[in-house]
Amino acid sequence: MRLKEKFNQLKKQGRKAFIAYVPFGFPEPKLTKPICLALAKGGVDIIELGIPFSDPLADGPIIQQATAKALAAGANLDNFFGTLKELSSSLTIPIVIMTYYNPVFKYGLERFLKRLKSHRVCATLIVDLPIEEAGQYLKSARGLGVDTVFFVTPTTDQKRMRKIINRSRGFIYYISVTGITGPKNIAYRSVARQVEFLKKISPLPVCVGFGIHSAEQVRAVNEFSDGAIVGSALVEFIDKNYRKKGFLNTLAAYTSKLCMK
C-alpha cells in the first residue's frame, strides 16, 4: 500500500496515523519479523524500520544502544534485505525505511532504492541527507516511485520549510524537540503552531516524532497533526521484555495501549 492510500484511508475513518520506529536487527536479526508482525497486530499503521549504523548522530542513548546491540548481533544489509523480503509478503501495512547515508552510499544509492522498491518499501528517510545534498537521491527516488520523507525541526525557518516541502513525498516528519531521539517534554503549543503552518502551505500529511513516549503524548500530538511517531519507548519496551514468555503478545498489547486501539 502506498502512503497516500494509507493516509486517505485513515482520513475516511477519522483516525490519525500511529507510526512505530524499530531498528532492524534489534535485539537480534531474526526477531525483527515477529516484532513487526506484533506491532501490526497492536494497531500500528505504518512501520518505520531503521538500518543500524555505527555512528547514529541524531539518536539518543536508547536507540544508540539498540543499534549497537543489533550490529553486535550481526545485523547487516544482507539479512536486512532478507527480512524485508519476508515482511513484504506477510505485512499489509506500509513500510518506511529510515537510515543514515553511509550504508546507502556504500551499497550504491540507485541500487539500494531499487532493492527497497522490489520489496515494496514505500518511502525512505535519510537522516543525514539534508535537501542541499539530496539532488541525486530525489532523482532516483522519483524515477522509482519511492516517496522521500524529510524532516522539519523547530529551528527550520519558513523559507527553508517551503524548500523541504517541495522535495517531500508521503508525509512530512516534524521533529518536536531541538535535539536527539528519546523521551522528552514537548512544548505542544509551539509544535502545534508549526504543524498548522506546514499544513497551511502543503497538502501533505504532517506527522510528529522525537520525544513521544506515552499514550497521553500521542493523544496530544494527534490533536493538531496527522499522526505520531514513537521509537525509543518501543525500543525500551522490547529491550526489557524480549526474553520473557509471551513477549510478542505483550508487545502487541503495549502497542495498542500506546496508539489507543
Binding site: L57, V127, D128, P130, T153, T156, I175
Partner: peptide, 12 residues
C-alpha cells in the same frame, strides 16, 4: 566535503 547532517544541524 559537503554538509551531510540531520536537519536540525543544517540550520546551525
Amino acid at each position: 566535503g559537503g554538509k551531510y547532517v540531520p536537519e536540525t544541524l543544517s540550520v546551525c
